[in-house]
Amino acid sequence: MIILNRKVLIIDKMHDSIFNMLEQIGFSADYRPDASRQEIEAVVGDYEVLFLRSKLSVDEAFLRKAGRLKVVGRAGAGVDQLDVETLEQRGISLINAPEGNRDAVAEHAVGMLLCLQNNLLKADAQVRQSIWDREGNRGTELSEKTVGIIGYGHMGQAFARRLQGFGCRLLAYDKFRQGFSDELVQESSQEDIFEQADVVSFHFPLTEENRGIINGAYLSRFKKEILLINTARGEILPLKDLVEKLKSGKVRGAALDVLENEKLHQLSAEEKENFDYLVQCDKVLLSPHVAGWTHESYRKINAVLVEKLKNLLY
């Protein structure tokens, strides 16, 4: 059990429900979503609990100013902006909330998959231009297809459950989990997925080890022409390699909720060239990192964080 003071510093915008939820376990919130990093660093030393989304990196320099900190709560799933090693060294508990937005991510991924399988983006644009091309927009059913899921944590499992009714075969690989085969999914090696998958969807967190791992060499290992879905982190998939495989046909379509560089007004010349190709390609579907960002998940994330904070206390 950790004994804490009764205030939480919140430095990102969160659903209003967070205040009542914290009150129910005896906490009050100091809500500073508009504060700059400098302003936050000036006050963080007074707090033992910090909640944030993606406003700033919790690195060693920041933590030196947070001498009393005992708990960091990430209002979301990914913790790539947090120096996990330093948090552990300082004895600071880290909690995050993948349970809060896993359903949102799963539904978004399925929606993107169905959109690409059935050419809905292209068909909609054509009909709006009075082009009635039935044959050119003939869809492909998911039934009897093999879907490979890379990463079988909260997000991967939720995605698999959403696909259960489509009659497709599900293969899953997770570097850190074994023995999870059941009536829904078959535990597989990456080699099995390379050999058999028609669709591949990525559901693992970003680390320095896997940054850029879904590169040209990786994509070349798939035996079939694949449809690719990335709702994880953009930095795992170099866009230049994806563009190359789209052009060659190895990737027959891509659904991307995340990009290697999401600051679209700060792209390098090469990044801009690759992004422009994705924009004009009717085999690509894009969304602005919103897969886990539904009206429902906004509140669910709060509930998960507060429950985990409560469990640290008692």
Rank of each mutant, 00 (worst) to 15 (best):
L227W: 01
L63A: 13
N230R: 06
S248M: 13
F176D: 11
G139H: 05
A123W: 07
G167R: 03
R64W: 08
F176Y: 15
S189H: 04
D182I: 14
E209C: 10
M1H: 13
S188N: 02
K310A: 04
T294R: 04
F27S: 03
E307V: 01
V43I: 14
A35W: 13
R102M: 12
K223I: 07
F27I: 08
A42W: 11
K247G: 11
L114W: 06
H15P: 12
A75N: 13
S93G: 07
V105F: 00
N20T: 13
T140R: 13
L246W: 08
G78P: 00
L239G: 06
R128G: 12
R162P: 07
G156L: 01
D83K: 02
H203F: 00
F62R: 02
A255G: 15
E209K: 15
V306M: 11
D46T: 07
S188C: 06
K65G: 13
L305S: 03
A123I: 00
S287R: 01
A255H: 04
L286R: 05
D59L: 11
V185H: 01
K272H: 14
L4A: 04
L113F: 08
V71T: 01
V84F: 09
A42M: 12
F166Q: 07
S188Q: 05
G91P: 03
R221V: 10
Q129I: 05
Y31T: 07
K224D: 09
G67C: 13
D257A: 07
N96I: 07
E191P: 00
L227D: 00
E273G: 14
P33S: 06
K263I: 03
E135Y: 02
D30C: 09
E260W: 10
T140I: 10
Y47E: 11
G249V: 10
V279T: 12
F194N: 09
Q38I: 12
Y47A: 10
S17N: 15
Y173Q: 05
L113T: 04
R64T: 14
V44I: 15
I95M: 08
F19G: 03
E99D: 15
E144N: 14
V43L: 13
F27M: 06
L56Y: 11
D192T: 13
L171I: 09
L22H: 02
E187P: 01
V72Q: 00
H289T: 12
D103E: 10
G253Q: 11
D133C: 06
L87Q: 03
G91N: 09
G153I: 04
C168Y: 02
H203N: 02
S130D: 14
K240A: 15
P98H: 10
N5F: 02
G151S: 02
V243A: 08
L50S: 00
L171A: 04
R128E: 11
V44G: 10
T231Q: 08
A254N: 04
V243H: 11
I214E: 01
Q266G: 00
A197M: 00
G167Q: 11
A61G: 14
D34M: 09
D83F: 00
D30N: 02
E141Q: 08
L239E: 15
S268W: 02
I214S: 01
